[in-house]
Design a protein around this nucleic acid. Structure first.
Lengths: 251, 251
DNA sequence: ACGCATTTGTTCGTATGTATT
DNA sequence: TAATACATACGAACAAATGCG
């Protein structure tokens, strides 16, 4: 009987190929938005059949690392472009008579409150794997839907990975924040987990989101991971859910 | 140029097979928890290759309609058994020193407050597709973790589909509610969507969940669908998130 | 304890269809 | 139209997991 019950002693070929492709992604051999080599090319490169490469790519596409486009090629997923926004943001406007039509997404704007080097509290440091005393960046920002502030984000990043990130630079970049991280810092967010709670607005949140202190808010605490499952961002969001809601699909 | 941009004019063979299998599931030819015929049997039945059946099953397994088990067979998904609970419930205890070990799930108990025939409000009727004036059932219940009430659910069902459902019957059934629906009423929940908001406790909720009126609560509004994407349940849950949180994974 | 049959999982190969440029 | 890329479909062989005799 093995000491570890569920330790795979080997892995099938297509998983090994998937791992090799992931390593190339991590090493930026192919950058977000670019096409990777064709299945036949990869099959030749790794000396396996096209079918095996196909299954490896299927896995990576299922994990949203790659996107297949028939007739064109297979592309590295990106947060930039991404139809001007969204991928991890699950907040949607409540359906209402005067609301946006089906399929369309509501325009979104942002305002950065500050971005400063800051000592990370112990829980934050633990969450994003900062080794003792390593510096952190704290970013605070507001998101607006139709001119109304709806989200207040408090974001923590490793200062080492995002050297030179400033409020100015954040404001200048058009498009989603994770797009900036990709193109400017080579850090790609691949997956995230969120913990959601109901809380009450403190004085700061109330004033920034223009609601009464003590009003209920959705607290969304996100840890975002990059390729090797390494946590690189902790984000604490407060969502005003009077006219919007967090949408989730259960399979 | 086609009038409808994304209308598939045909569907590949494996999708047609998947549709046929889904119809058999819907017709209860194979019941939840049971095994469906082997890939080779299905291939013979539909006069296609094993690979085509395999791809059809892959699709259905990805949608959680079926579960594959190597060496044994392919099984119809079920909410019964399901390691004594859970599948759609995303509430988890905050990790704490004295908390349950990794992998284990906290034991859960329930108490049904009532189950009565009730005229459904217009919005409820619309959500679960009740045709004008059709009768509805309203169920209210509490969920307890470690003896503490944490969830108050207000559930609406079509009375026609769940003829004979009573509080007694609900209490008598051990295991998840959707398991009862499956085995006793032949209604299988396949997927669901949830809208999450932060609200404040009214007097009723406060008293039942043992917290102060005005305390923040997570409002989770779920619409659950059966095979043909027909909505059959509307569930409004209020979650106390002082010691638990709603957990979500972003891909 | 062993081997065997069954079932899904992996891998290869080949041919053809569909989408894009 | 032609070339290229992914998508579908078939067939075959062997591996791994399971359960039974």
């Amino acid at each position: 009987m093995p000491a570890v019950p569920d330790a795979p002693l080997f892995s099938p070929l297509y998983r090994q190929i998937a791992a090799l492709i992931t390593r190339s992604l991590q090493a930026s051999e192919w950058k977000p938005g670019e096409a990777i080599p064709s299945e036949l090319d990869l099959a030749a490169r790794y000396k396996v059949s096209q079918g095996t490469v196909r299954k490896a790519i299927d896995d990576l596409a299922a994990g949203n690392l790659l996107v297949r486009r028939q007739g064109k090629g297979t592309y590295v997923s990106t947060h930039a472009e991404e139809q001007t926004q969204f991928r991890f943001l699950r907040l949607a406007p409540d359906s209402a008579p005067g609301a946006p039509k089906a399929g369309e997404r509501e325009p979104l704007s942002r305002r950065f409150l500050d971005c400063r080097r800051q000592r990370a509290p112990a829980d934050v440091a633990r969450a994003i794997g900062l080794r003792g005393g390593e510096a952190a960046l704290q970013v605070r920002r507001l998101l607006y839907f139709r001119g109304q502030a709806v989200v207040l984000d408090d974001i923590w990043l490793s200062a080492g990975l995002f050297k030179g990130l400033t409020s100015t630079r954040l404001s200048a970049y058009q498009g989603p924040m994770y797009g900036l991280f990709e193109t400017e810092f080579g850090v790609r967010m691949v997956r995230a987990t969120e913990q959601i709670r109901a809380v009450v607005a403190d004085a700061t949140a109330a004033s920034l989101l223009e609601l009464a202190p003590g009003a209920p808010l959705l607290s969304v605490e996100r840890v975002a991971y990059t390729y090797d499952d390494r946590p690189v961002e902790l984000r604490r969001g407060l969502y005003d859910t009077r006219t919007h809601h967090y949408r989730n699909e259960l399979g």
